[in-house]
Design a binder for these strands. Structure first.
Lengths: 115, 115
DNA sequence: CCGAACTATATTGTCATGCAAGGTAGCTGT
DNA sequence: ACAGCTACCTTGCATGACAATATAGTTCGG
């Protein structure tokens, strides 16, 4: 089915892009995992589940891009806040540059005039 | 190394996006594999190798998105030209819509004002 | 006429990742 | 007690980019 192809393709398209979004979301403020899911899912095209965010955050921590702080919550278990390290901030800059390049390239191909 | 992380991430980011570019490149005219590589590699951020294009084209053909025509060449082996089927053209439209949605979503996250 | 260089197609294997599914645990209201 | 929400985390699968590799035809210099 077309629907299958499209759903599958959409998954593939998001690879890597979600990492960019998560890092970008942490640029302005610290956030905890569950919150990031809600935050990004509010945006069309960036809907994601918890099984997606936690592996990403673990990777980020392992690679020294973020650090964590535990904080009590009155609405459930303690929240683990993630905040960017200088290294994470620097890498985010490079990723944004690479993203802009690819985005512009795609824009060029998809709007190409007929030859 | 940061360089490793970035290189790896760039690879992941391109997943799916390259398929979009290939379909889009075929929108205006038929092309053969080697030619598509040269064509897209001329654009920064869309550089790709032959080991990438042929699996994509095979998938497209298997899924009925493109059809092929063989044509003699005076500069090497016969060229296998790929052209969009109506189904491929229709799917390209849907993919472009999904792409626009994700692109705009990322734009929103990465340019978010400080709270 | 031999080999280097280029065109062109194709396959195999590795690796990272998105995501569904499942599991644990704390707090709130009935 | 129990349902329902918040919040965290792990396992397993499917997918696709890319490097490496193989094959074969053409062209051109020595």
């Amino acid at each position: 089915m077309d629907a299958d192809f499209l759903a599958n393709w959409t998954t593939q398209m998001r690879k890597g892009l979600l990492e960019l979004c998560v890092l970008a979301a942490l640029k302005a403020r610290r956030m905890y995992g569950y919150d990031i899911v809600k935050h990004l899912s509010a945006i069309d095209g960036l809907v994601m589940g918890e099984g997606t965010i936690y592996p990403i955050l673990s990777r980020f921590k392992k690679d020294g891009l973020v650090e964590t702080t535990l904080a009590e919550s009155s609405e459930g278990p303690a929240r683990k806040y993630y905040q960017l390290t200088p290294r994470g901030r620097q890498l985010l800059g490079k990723m944004l540059a690479a993203w802009a390049e690819v985005r512009d390239g795609i824009e060029a191909v998809t709007t190409e005039p007929l030859l």
